[in-house]
Design a protein around this nucleic acid. Sequence first.
DNA 1: TCATCAAACGGAGGCATCCTCCGCATCTCT
DNA 2: AGAGATGCGGAGGATGCCTCCGTTTGATGA
Lengths: 194, 194
Amino acid sequence: MSQEFRRTQVRQPRADGERNRARIIEAAKQRFAEQGAGAALEQIARDAGVGIGTLYRHFPTRDVLIEAVYRHEVDALVVAAGELSAKEPPIEALRAWLALFIEFLDTKQGIGAVLDTLIGGSEPLYSGTPAQLSPPIDLLVSRANEDGAARIEIAPLDLLRAIAGVATIRPGAAWKRQALALVDLMLRGAQATV
Amino acid sequence: MSQEFRRTQVRQPRADGERNRARIIEAAKQRFAEQGAGAALEQIARDAGVGIGTLYRHFPTRDVLIEAVYRHEVDALVVAAGELSAKEPPIEALRAWLALFIEFLDTKQGIGAVLDTLIGGSEPLYSGTPAQLSPPIDLLVSRANEDGAARIEIAPLDLLRAIAGVATIRPGAAWKRQALALVDLMLRGAQATV
DNA sequence: TCATCAAACGGAGGCATCCTCCGCATCTCT
DNA sequence: AGAGATGCGGAGGATGCCTCCGTTTGATGA
């Protein structure tokens, strides 16, 4: 009978499971930074000291893993959007946030597939992070538009995609400055009197 | 002695070699369209009815193959740049050419790695096509700048990269319109009085 | 027409990775 | 402590990459 009540009860997750999950993320962060998002999953499992099966159980696809790895940083971006939006005039807020985004990309070495995962690339699923990043950028853009200070007709996420496109070059190059220049170019366009 | 003279003589290329090369390109075009640029090279070789070794001799890397597949279309873009540049006012020429570029991207299904190859992605070599596309876009941009009609400070190739970034979504979506809107946004920015 | 030999072929094989599957170990809860 | 759920892990089958090298083929000149 007590079964009836237990049905909705959640068992506390196993300690070893959580530990392994954390280890895998840590190992993955390391490898992704070194070798890009294409790093061998089996190697990551070895680094983490777990079997490959364990890795796949926690993260069924590469994308899920990538997403988990960059979760914190993405969260930070989301928070920053809220704060900037509250403190700064629309255009400045948008510009500042895009700068943060560029900064974030800069910390990623192997970019490539990471971007796809974060921003919604060519692969089928991509559910998580784009959905997470969408609200903040939507907010910033619509604030700027409503304010009358700007006129941005493209999908807000496409702003990020455009920036990411510029980032698709080897680090070391002056891509960061270029990306910022692109932001300014776009924002000038957004503010242009027609 | 006659050896001396023959040294510079070029032997007529073997007919089977050329035939196989053409077959591989044809098969690759097909597969790339269906499955994206990540399609298995061994499968392409099978489609073409040649051994994998033959494929690799003709096209040592995937990028070389991709480049060969899209060669004609890229050539057309280069030609168009010259023509537009001669006929149209700078800004219009640039806008029109970017529209052509978008049109070109639209015919590519599996985009992804194709863009890397065309536009200079994260991989080491990427010699060919970016170098091929660079002069025309450089020309168009500098014409617009010198004309005083625009002020574009970012690297011209980055314009293409930004557009390509927007294209990094599944076909079917309205990306094409979005990409055109991005072009307009950037061009408005380029023309903005400061 | 035929002999010659550079050019081209093709696929076996070694290596790497992906991902699944399932018997076994471990942990939580009572 | 005992039971059952939960998680572990790595062998194994599949696939793809790329190289290497013995074999075949076709262009050429006599």
